[in-house]
């Protein structure tokens, strides 16, 4: 006996409704799973791009430092030595030429002495040999001493550094400090004291450069010259964080926080 039409139709309609609901639920589940997969792939791609950008940045800075070292060494060993030799020869000439022209010889000797000092200073600024020979602490002491003697501000240095970072990171940190000190010397109008400190704070090593000068309003500051861009690049290369506090007439305080855990990891990789 054939089933009544009513029962057949009711099963058909119910099946159609259930099928549509299952289709809808299936579609949504597929959407959720597929979206999560796409998100994961996007994150992986972004992480790979960032890693590549960091590697590129590190390679660029390394190339820059290599060139600086080469030029600094050539200046010191080449031109510096040549000028020093010329100074000696002038002194010998002064002794050989009888009487007279003493003033002229003194002037020439002074000019050559200045040239030797300038060459040494430029060579040291280009590449701090103290850092490679004696480490970051000594390099910062030397930088503070030279800046204190030559610059308009008194420089006070506080150091508590146990040599945690590899050489490339120490060099990057030194460059940041050098740039910050130069900026303070140039732009901190009315400042009398510049404090530089390098101290560990938990899992983080903090470099702080602060002055009691005129300060600046970040909103009105132009987007940044080469110096600030170089600081920014090195901060990114170190995986560090830059904290800046400044306001007009309230001095400036800039801190760089470097995670020492990542330093020990990169040290292990080398």
């Amino acid at each position: 006996m054939a089933p009544p039409e009513e029962v057949t139709f009711s099963w058909l309609l119910l099946s159609a409704v259930v099928l549509m609901l299952l289709l809808g639920a299936g579609l949504v589940m597929f959407l959720v799973v597929y979206q999560k997969r796409l998100l994961r792939q996007q994150k992986q791609q972004r992480a790979a791009e960032m890693a590549y950008q960091r590697q590129l940045l590190a390679a660029t800075i390394e190339a820059q430092e290599y060139e600086r070292e080469r030029i600094g060494r050539d200046l010191h060993d080449g031109i510096g030595s040549t000028i020093a030799t010329a100074k000696l020869l002038v002194h010998r000439l002064e002794q050989m030429v009888p009487g007279g022209h003493a003033e002229l010889f003194t002037m020439v000797t002074d000019i050559l002495s200045t040239a030797v000092q300038d060459t040494r200073r430029i060579s040291h600024n280009l590449y701090p040999a103290v850092l490679t020979h004696f480490g970051l602490a000594e390099a910062l002491r030397h930088l503070a001493k030279v800046s204190d003697e030559a610059g308009p501000l008194r420089v006070q240095l506080t150091l508590d550094y146990a040599g945690l970072l590899p050489v490339q990171q120490e060099l990057a940190l030194y460059r940041i400090c050098q740039e910050l000190v130069n900026n303070a010397m140039k732009h901190a109008r009315g400042a009398t004291l510049l404090t530089v400190s390098l101290q560990p704070q938990g899992q983080v090593l903090t470099l702080t450069v602060a002055d009691d000068g005129c300060g600046f309003d970040r909103a009105t500051l132009p987007s940044g010259g080469a110096g600030l861009r170089s600081i920014d690049a090195r901060v990114r290369m170190l995986g560090a964080q830059l904290l800046s506090q400044s306001a007009p007439q309230q001095g400036t305080r800039i801190s760089i926080e470097i995670p020492t855990a990542s330093a020990s990891l990169s040290h292990a990789q080398h």
Binding site: E6, F9, S10, L13, A16, V17, M20, L21, G24, A25
Partner: peptide, 22 residues
Amino acid sequence: LLLYFLGDVHIFLFSNFLLNYS
């Protein structure tokens, strides 16, 4: 909305037919 309208589209299609049927 997806579950509601997917499920109900057949119900709406056959609603008048159902009134006379059972």
